[in-house]
Amino acid sequence: MNKIMYLEFERCIGCRACQAACRECGDHDAKERNFVEHVDFMESRQTFPMMCMQCKDPACARVCPANAIQITEEGVVLSASDEKCIGCRNCTFGCPFGIPKFDFEENKMYKCDMCYDRSKHDIAPMCASVCPSDAIRFIDFDEMQSLRRRRTQMNLVEGKKPTEQDKWKYVPEFFGVYSD
């Protein structure tokens, strides 16, 4: 899998097509795994999409006492496996991005798996496929690099230099198989 997901929050129009589409994906059990939220509706209509960063060393898996969160060979961090998850929600609290969701009825955690049945065939995940504003994109690694370079330059122009090694405060807005 050479393609990766790339998020640009400013482009988001808050339509939640990605969430509707997430429910359509295989094995998603009609439950969306991504988020679209207002930054602060009182102040602005700015919304943002958010989903799993598929970390290379995922905090969620590290805080799981049952060792239930597995990573595929492509680097996709899967939902807690049904048989192991004991329902403690450590992953929800450990994840620096607030991603894992929890189903109290079925007593298990579920999260974005990049539409594993699609992305393993290099077909864009449902959210990236339908996103009308291209806030979520499924693009080549090189294209992501150039978009990021451009973005970093613009941020520098605007005096928004991220501090070095400040990974959790200024996370690069891409995820997928690749991460810093």
Partner: peptide, 25 residues
């Protein structure tokens, strides 16, 4: 974080929001 708190001190929704606000300045 720089103010001494940890990310797990915030609810998941705030963690998402903090990150986005940081990124959008």
């Amino acid at each position: 974080l720089s103010d001494g708190t940890y990310l797990s001190d915030y609810c998941p929704a705030c963690r998402r929001r903090m990150r986005v606000m940081k990124q959008m300045n």
